[in-house]
Nucleic acid binder design. Structure first.
Lengths: 195, 195
DNA sequence: GTAATTATGTACCTTTTAGTCCACAATTAA
DNA sequence: TTAATTGTGGACTAAAAGGTACATAATTAC
């Protein structure tokens, strides 16, 4: 009963996410977004309401994908190996360009912690879901006597997240893949999670 | 031979640093700065050239102070205790408000990694100086047989920095002092640096 | 007092920002 | 073919951004 859209909403969202991911919220201007998404201004506002709403949607997408990645690994790997697999697939086995984007949740927290508490909260919540995924897997393995219990599952997940956050910052610096790999190996060794 | 300035440059710089520290570069507007610094527009440009130049100066000041703090501790403490002392005085023994500001170098790296590589570089360099300070202290203690050698001094300093970066992200989230303290204690324990 | 010099307050500039408006295009139901 | 509905392009707006210009105020050297 009406004219159909000329663009693929999912693809446009994807393009926006990549841009926000690398540049952050403030530094990404509307013209930047429109060009990357390949749509016109009016279509933008009709489909995504505001820049901030779009950012929120992108952040949710990013967080959900990150969580899905861990849940996927959790079906085939031993819980002890989940952190290493996570670092492999998000830091080591990706292009330098992509590694340089870091983690969108972390970027958001540091950019907007004080300027937009609601977005900080959303990013924090998404990161917490990741931490919970690790903790759940560790807990099961510990209960079946299949994993060291020096730390409780929650404590261990918390430590893994601290390392993760540290690595995300280093990803946005000029650290080489080799340096990052060394840090990953030694950190996991220190936590008793070496391969 | 000329009219004297009506403001204290050092105090104005200090005020600017605090504002940049908490809000970041982009989100701090010129009117914000002028009000916090207590000076007029023309005095601002006469004394600090541009907003970016001022930010650079603030970042240098912040980095130098951070380094000085560690060097100071290094005169009275065992190298093994330096990381703990550092976390105490920058995260645990400060107001919630101040802890929530995190570390200006880390904030800068995540905000400007892609938008301003030169500032990313400066922040990275300042952080590296901190890492070197730790490494130097560790190295001396190891050589005098006074410290564990599971990791080389550089490796250990690198791990401490990773933890540090992770903690700075968590400081900008809503983590309580108690949570942060737990993470600090367990992280240092994992690195063999427990008190 | 006067000249020289530097600081300051105010008005202004250009550019860019996010967001709105509306005429027109394209589609479907009847 | 017509009415109804929704998408799109482009012009537009108001606010805010960083930065400049300049007249005036305050000081020192002489």
């Amino acid at each position: 009963m009406a004219r159909p859209p000329e663009f693929d909403r999912t693809k446009a969202l994807e393009a926006a996410m990549k841009l926000f991911w690398i540049r952050g919220f403030t530094a990404t201007s509307l013209p930047d977004l429109l060009e990357a998404m390949g749509i016109a201004r009016s279509s933008f506002y009709a489909s995504f309401r505001t820049k901030r709403d779009l950012f929120t949607e992108c952040l949710e997408l990013f967080g959900d994908r990150t969580l899905a990645m861990i849940n996927e690994d959790n079906r085939s790997l031993h819980p002890r190996d989940l952190p290493h697999a996570f670092f492999e697939s998000t830091i080591l086995n990706v292009s330098k360009h992509r590694a340089g984007r870091g983690c969108m949740m972390v970027n958001t927290i540091l950019e907007l912690a004080n300027a937009d508490p609601a977005l900080n909260e959303l990013a924090t919540q998404k990161l917490y879901a990741v931490e919970q995924a690790f903790a759940g897997a560790f807990s099961l393995a510990q209960k079946s006597g299949d994993m060291d219990t020096t730390y409780t599952s929650k404590q261990l997940a918390s430590l893994v997240m601290t390392i993760n956050l540290g690595l995300r910052v280093q990803s946005r610096q000029n650290k080489s893949r080799e340096e990052l790999q060394s840090i990953i190996e030694r950190s996991l060794f220190a936590l008793g999670l070496a391969a």
